[in-house]
Design a protein around this nucleic acid. Structure first.
Length: 156
DNA sequence: CCCTGATTCGC
DNA sequence: GCGAATCAGG
C-alpha cells in the first residue's frame, strides 16, 4: 500500500457528513467508512462539526493539568480543619475510601457502601476491598452492623 | 467494567 | 492534517 491516497477523500467526507447528520454515532460512521472511531471524531472536530457545544471551560492542556496539580488542597484543608476543630472524638472513624467508584464499577471486589445522596451529582460508592464474604470493607462492615449507627437497617 | 464524544499533541 | 492516546461523562 504505497498510495498517497488520503484517508479523507471528498466522497468519504460526504459520507461522513451525511452519516453525521443522520445521527449515527461516531463508531457507526467509522465502521461504514472503514476507519477508526478516533479518525472520525478527529475529522469531525477539524470540520467544526460537533453535536453539542464543547464544555464551557475547555480542559487545560495536559502540561497545565500536571503543573496545577499541587495547590488546591490548601482551601480544603482549612475548611476541614475548621470543621473538625470543634468536633468531638466521634469515633476514630474516618473510613478512607481511596477507590470510590460509580454504580457501573461496583463488583464483588468493591465495597458497596453508598457515599453522599443517591441521585446527587457526587453520589458514589466506597469501592474499598470488601472483607471476606461481606458487601462492605472492614470499616463499613463495622459501621453497618454497629447498633444505632443506622437505626437497625440491617436487621433480619 | 462497558460505552460515548471531545481534546491534545506527536507524527 | 491525521489519529492514537487520553480525557470527561453516563
Amino acid at each position: 500500500m504505497l498510495t498517497n491516497v488520503p484517508t479523507w477523500t471528498t466522497d468519504r467526507i460526504e459520507l461522513l457528513k451525511s452519516h453525521f447528520e443522520a445521527g449515527l454515532t461516531c463508531r457507526e460512521i467509522a465502521a461504514s467508512i472503514g476507519v477508526s472511531r478516533n479518525a472520525v471524531i478527529g475529522k469531525l472536530s477539524r470540520l467544526q462539526l460537533t453535536r453539542g457545544p464543547a464544555p464551557a471551560e475547555p480542559r487545560p492542556t495536559k502540561a497545565a493539568r500536571e503543573r496545577s496539580r499541587k495547590s488546591i488542597p490548601r482551601l480544603q484543608y482549612q475548611v476541614l480543619q475548621a470543621v473538625y476543630e470543634n468536633a468531638q472524638p466521634l469515633q476514630e472513624e474516618p473510613i478512607a475510601s481511596e477507590r470510590r467508584c460509580s454504580l457501573y464499577e461496583l463488583s464483588n471486589e468493591r465495597c458497596r457502601w453508598p457515599i453522599s445522596t443517591p441521585g446527587a451529582e457526587d453520589f458514589c460508592f466506597c469501592g474499598n476491598t470488601p472483607v471476606e464474604g461481606m458487601p462492605y470493607c472492614s470499616g463499613h462492615t463495622r459501621l453497618a452492623y454497629r447498633p444505632g449507627s443506622r437505626q437497625r437497617v440491617a436487621r433480619g
